[in-house]
């Protein structure tokens, strides 16, 4: 089967039961998408599929054939994406395990609705779990990147 990820086609052979998260990591070699719970709660595996943030652990890879998938590896084009820059500036990550999921969650939300309020951002971010930051600086980083993207 083929997976279309970050603008590239990956020809992979997988069992039907292999989740998209596992296929990205093990079969496409894209280990930036992390696996934290495999039952859809933590959000570490969040990727963007056909424009929407989804849990890659709750979709089988075979289901994603034909879909446009974006992962954290596709975010930076040379230099860091605005949201990645704001995560640096606001110390929005510590161990970095949940970070790819939060980045994809926030990017998808912002692309769908450019004018998210801070309250809406908080609501969006409550979908994923982080154990290091107490969310303080993730919220600040995402708010700042939303402001910057609105202004430019």
């Amino acid at each position: 089967m083929k997976l279309h990820v970050n603008g590239r086609d990956y020809d992979i052979a997988v069992e039907a039961r292999r989740t998209l998260a596992d296929a990205l990591r093990k079969d496409c070699g894209l280990t930036g998408t992390h696996i934290g719970c495999e039952h859809g709660v933590c959000g570490a595996c969040t990727v963007i599929m056909d424009g929407a943030a989804v849990r890659a652990c709750l979709i089988f890879a075979v289901q994603a054939e034909g879909a446009v998938i974006r992962t954290v590896e596709g975010l930076a084009a040379g230099g860091l994406h605005v949201i990645q820059q704001e995560f640096v500036a606001h110390h929005g990550l510590q161990c970095g395990f949940c970070t790819p999921g939060f980045l994809m969650l926030a990017v998808a939300a912002r692309e769908a609705e450019p004018d998210l309020t801070d309250a809406e951002i908080l609501d969006v971010l409550s979908a994923n779990l982080c154990r290091c930051t107490g969310y303080q600086n993730i919220v600040k980083a995402v708010s700042a990147s939303a402001r910057r993207m609105r202004e430019t």
């Binding site: 992962t71 954290v72 975010l75 930076a76 970095g96």
Partner: peptide
């Protein structure tokens, strides 16, 4: 530490 972690390269 951040750059690699943010690129999914940690």
């Amino acid at each position: 530490e951040d750059d690699a972690l943010l690129r999914g390269a940690g």
